[in-house]
Design a protein around this nucleic acid. Structure first.
Length: 274
DNA sequence: ACTCGCCTGTCG
DNA sequence: CGACAGGCGAGT
């Protein structure tokens, strides 16, 4: 579900509600996760500490609680929700932190592709695969990252945009959207992009991510993403091609096409993108 | 550089 | 019932 704008939206809402507050108790449900949730470790390392910071690296969240820390990834279906204890828990609530102001932070993830791993704070930055991540598109050199990728490989540019070692945070929605804005066909080799088109793509990536953050992220029709305060993001109405196969291109009116690359849908306009 | 597997849920 | 879903990593 969540790409950079959704994770950033979660980071902001959780920070706004809970930063600086003490965790009074931790509840962990015993389910099998990609990285197992270690209930004893969560309770031992986190209980009694304050949430001192919440940072984002690409799609990963890094939380600091005194000498302890946690890395959280939302996978495809993960949510971090701030809730009142009385509110009914959603199915697949795996972890609950009870804060001193009476609010809960709940990690919910039906598909369990996400994780929440606790560790010593000084291990956060080296937790795999964080050291391998490429630059963050909001602050880093997107054009340079694309140019470097083009020197190493000739893969379709859409696939390169999904490679978190090249750029950290772009996922399937924003890859399609950025390529549409830049007028680049998803199958075009990254190595074949001219400097001019690379620059256009870099700008499109930054813009689409920033606009989405401003809208609170993308909530698709299935309602899979909500911010931590329960708000849906409204960027979906601005999606030009993603999940719009057969709909008229906003620019030229030709039907949007869907193509499968590396096992995942890519949406594009056959007449506007080359 | 692809394909599959990991899970649950929804939609056609 | 199969196809598909906003991610990622292992295996080939």
């Amino acid at each position: 579900m969540p790409e950079l704008p959704e994770v950033e939206t979660v980071r902001r809402t959780v920070s706004g509600a809970l930063l600086g507050l003490r965790v009074e108790a931790v509840e962990v449900a015993a389910v099998k996760m990609r990285h197992p949730l270690d209930g004893d470790k969560w309770r031992r390392l986190i209980t009694g500490n304050r949430l001192e910071s919440l940072d984002r690296r690409g799609k990963y969240l890094l939380a600091r609680f005194g000498q302890a820390g946690a890395v959280v990834h939302l996978g495809m279906s993960g949510r971090l929700l701030v809730a009142r204890p009385g509110q009914a828990r959603l199915a697949h609530t795996h972890l609950v932190l009870h804060f001193e102001n009476g609010l809960d932070l709940r990690f919910v993830d039906p598909r369990r592709f996400g994780f929440a791993v606790v560790m010593a704070a000084q291990e956060l930055e080296t937790f795999p695969p964080l050291p391998e991540l490429g630059p963050d598109p909001l602050t880093g050199d997107v054009e340079g990252a694309l140019a470097a990728a083009g020197r190493r490989q000739r893969a379709p540019v859409r696939n390169v945009l999904l490679d978190q070692r090249v750029l950290a945070g772009v996922g399937n929605i924003y890859a399609s959207e950025a390529l549409f804005r830049a007028g680049i066909h998803p199958q075009r080799s990254v190595a074949a992009l001219s400097a001019r088109r690379r620059a256009r793509l870099a700008t499109a990536i930054r813009q689409v991510l920033e606009e989405s953050i401003a809208a609170g992220g993308t909530t698709l029709a299935d309602g899979g993403f909500v911010a931590s305060d329960g708000q849906a993001g409204y960027f979906a109405v601005q999606l030009a091609v993603y999940d719009r196969e057969g709909s008229p291109c906003q620019r030229c009116g030709k039907p949007v096409r869907r193509l499968v690359l590396a096992g995942r849908s890519a949406y594009y306009c056959p007449s506007c993108q080359h």
